[in-house]
Design a protein around this nucleic acid. Structure first.
Lengths: 159, 159
DNA sequence: TCTTTACACACAATATATTGTGGTTTATAA
DNA sequence: TTATAAACCACAATATATTGTGTGTAAAGA
């Protein structure tokens, strides 16, 4: 590992610790030549995860894009950014473990909705209104009624 | 290091190799639980390198910004992208090894010009015309004359 | 098509990173 | 102001990653 100060490739590890969620390893290194110290991170080199859109076109799975959608749905709902990032993390893990390489966009939407519902119902409805592309106010209202009907059974998985 | 497929934190290294320029280490890992394999990269966690602009304001050193400037200066000069990336890499190494944490923008410009001149004189002049903010055509021409005068003594450092 | 380059895979010997423990400092939150 | 969390530091015992060597394959360029 090349030293960022002098460019020599010979450096030694002084300390190495996994990050809290074990998604990366932080190492403290020291250059054998100039004795300067620096920090490195070992992270997963993303294997491409392809999303199949409704029109059949493919594109790469994009953290940021999904996060943006969640942030929009969660406006003024006072939910920390970290909660959304966590959700996206769970989502990706779920996708990678269940599917192989390509995932229909609708499956992603369904997973998000399932998770979102347990976090915030307002955000859930907002997200659904975009994702399901409700054709009119009636369809929107129907979804709301559905939720209100089930609100009593908190924490229950709907059949 | 958490497995991206099943989420278990216990994974083993199968193979590890430095990249060509030794700026990173690629590891091939295998999950102890699900036996899936994946690739990781250990890279330097950038320590912030601050640029002091002419007006005194500070901002973070930005690879991309400099690369863009070089690309612009090198338009139609048929120089591979990799050459510019290499230049930016050398620049950053130089900055980190000579200065401490903060570098005047002008020093950066000077280093770039010095390197640029050895690569392509047209790109050099274009870059200089922006960086030195030549006030008029005369100043521009003076710089060109300067270069033409020294063109014979190839590879020589100007006094 | 042929060549080159990059990545994946396997194996064995040895050097080196890891891990726990514990202390310090710094920044952020309460 | 006082907690709390991260990052940094040190040390020692041991497990684990590294390295060379070599094969195969797929992608990219000539």
């Amino acid at each position: 590992m090349k030293c960022p100060y002098c460019g020599e490739p010979d450096t030694r590890v002084l300390d190495s610790r996994a990050t809290q969620d074990s998604s990366a390893i932080r190492r403290r290194r020291q250059c054998v030549s100039c004795a300067n110290r620096f920090t490195t991170m070992e992270k997963i080199e993303e294997e491409p995860l392809v999303v199949i859109k409704r029109d059949g076109r493919r594109e790469l799975f994009d953290h940021g894009k999904i996060l943006k959608g969640l942030l929009l749905a969660g406006q003024k709902r006072n939910i920390p950014l970290s909660r959304w990032e966590e959700l996206v993390g769970e989502l990706e893990l779920e996708l990678r473990s269940s599917y192989v390489k390509e995932v229909p966009a609708d499956s992603i939407g369904d997973i998000i909705l399932k998770k979102l519902r347990k976090i915030d119902e307002v955000a859930y409805v907002r997200f659904a209104s975009v994702f399901r592309q409700f054709p009119d106010v009636e369809a929107f209202k129907a979804e709301l009624d559905e939720i209100l009907k089930e609100t009593g059974e908190e924490g229950q998985e709907p059949g």
